[in-house]
Design a protein around this nucleic acid. Sequence first.
DNA 1: ACTATCCGTGAAAGCGTTTTCTTGAAGTCC
DNA 2: GGACTTCAAGAAAACGCTTTCACGGATAGT
Lengths: 340, 340
Amino acid sequence: MGRKARERKAGQVTIVDVASLAEVSISTVSRILNGSAYVDPEKRERIEAAIRDLGFAPKAAARALAGRRTKTLGLLVPEISDDFFVPMLRGIEGAARLAGYELLIKTTSYGGGGRGNWALGEHNTDGLLLFADSADPELVADLSVRGFPFVLLYTEPPAGMRIPSVTVENESGSAAVVSHLAAAHGRSRIVCLSGPESNHDAAARLRGYRAALESLGMAFDPGLVAPGDFSAPVAASSIRGLLRRKVAFDAVFACDDGAAMGAIGALGEAGIRVGADVSVVGFDDLAFAAHSSLATVRAPTEEVGAHGVRILISLVDGGEGLESLVFPTVFVPRRSCGCE
Amino acid sequence: MGRKARERKAGQVTIVDVASLAEVSISTVSRILNGSAYVDPEKRERIEAAIRDLGFAPKAAARALAGRRTKTLGLLVPEISDDFFVPMLRGIEGAARLAGYELLIKTTSYGGGGRGNWALGEHNTDGLLLFADSADPELVADLSVRGFPFVLLYTEPPAGMRIPSVTVENESGSAAVVSHLAAAHGRSRIVCLSGPESNHDAAARLRGYRAALESLGMAFDPGLVAPGDFSAPVAASSIRGLLRRKVAFDAVFACDDGAAMGAIGALGEAGIRVGADVSVVGFDDLAFAAHSSLATVRAPTEEVGAHGVRILISLVDGGEGLESLVFPTVFVPRRSCGCE
DNA sequence: ACTATCCGTGAAAGCGTTTTCTTGAAGTCC
DNA sequence: GGACTTCAAGAAAACGCTTTCACGGATAGT
């Protein structure tokens, strides 16, 4: 039972120990710790020596409690595991670290509901980064009312709310895809493998696809919009469905790279040559896209994360800095669309 | 100018507010919060209602300070961005979450040295997960002396120290590769694209390669060991070097999948057919390996992370549970080795 | 009935910092 | 040169919770 391992407590060195060793008050030690006021150089030296000798490390909990800030940023994502998060996480982690903040990550996919959001809420973090689908409208409204600092990543604030957010140019990205497919490869029946309906990006990409068709004078055929959920398996079966129903198409624009790979798989099974017979394009330019020669739209995911952190920190520091940003995207032609 | 945005404080609801609304003492509220004692059902209900109505969320800092445990686990990794960490992180995150712990992630690659490890040390986390190269010997020794709970992932404790660790079977994994290459594809001059010298896994994989050669009666040629660092670019230039120097080889065993992809790239440039002319095998079975038809050795990375967390938590809870574990690996043949 | 045991609950003592608030000494000004 | 600032540094009051202790009221034992 957990009755042992409690005597560890003895070894805990606190600010009091440092103070008495250095023969100063704890206030002065605290001042050194935070650089919050001028301290006599001699005492400073004694204190620094004491800290070193004792191996003192201030307890974050106590600092947070007394100082009413945790120096911690919370990140809410649906699934930490996804390839998509890797670059974003890197951006976030780096920026947070640079600013001297810790990062507390929480996934919402599992039983995140009830008491789950607790820890990320008030005062357990100084601010929150909400990623796309993790930005539950209720949560957003609640945080907003409370005036708790947070920023939205890869999704836009509910209509009417002025909340900082960082997104990418989805519409123009997918428009670029459609134009390229039509202009460079003469494709005219382009399937749009969409994403989850609730997803902001998926919706925007579909809109961009539609808008591009119209501006190119091509007809929009609802029959060419295939359901997807940003995953390869579902994408594959969606494409298989089209093939089975003998729907004619000469290109597939998937709303994300994962789905694109699924489509490629399904086409391959059917003996259809990707690139030559049917162009396939994804979105996001995930790490594997280059390996797989997948044409796609590159989004500066890492930069999105980093910028989100920057905005958040400025908010936490009391700034208004509502600099919502939309990062540009660029089309990256590769073999899967017929290029090269 | 951070003088505004400070009046937010007013809205903070504490345990005191809950207690007075429910007309009980804060002790009783605390008991409900922690389920630490029986409470009259009627009061319980009043308290729960109050918590709900007030939207009360206990402050982690206060709990940590008073309860002397943070319910937070620290993870030290060199680079959060790497593909390799995705599955491990998923495992860790899931297990931590399941046990009701938060996850604090810190990268060591940048200026992690000095004051950086502070926050992860004593009492800012209840325990630490150290990943491979992040497990600085000094740090390990220090933590060990202090009796601070921690476990090693993907690396073994320094000689003589009895520290819980979770690793995978590297030797047998690479041995399986060599055997397969020799037996199934008749390869006899197998290049070993090694990893960073300081890396435990890289060393073990190289050992396994050597041991396998010997046990198969094949000569070990130091000239076939090419330097690498677990990255594609370095791997590619390493292979180019071999080609330029006209070193003869009919297979490449890369100590990790990233390097394997680099090798494949370099071979491709030289017009050498991967699989047919030269077999290429990686290690880890990262997400992209399947897409790229890369033969590799699958390591249960996710499980390693999850198990690490489990051990750590048992340590935190005062258990001895020094169940160091070595997970098995399995060879996965794919087109790049000549199979299919 | 009368004491001995139990147990739910409240009071209060921390937990380790940061942050006023004070204080006394040094420095400034006419 | 005496009264007024200035300022480094200590004392003490939060910060919001957990936990120990003590107190009655209720239950049980004889």
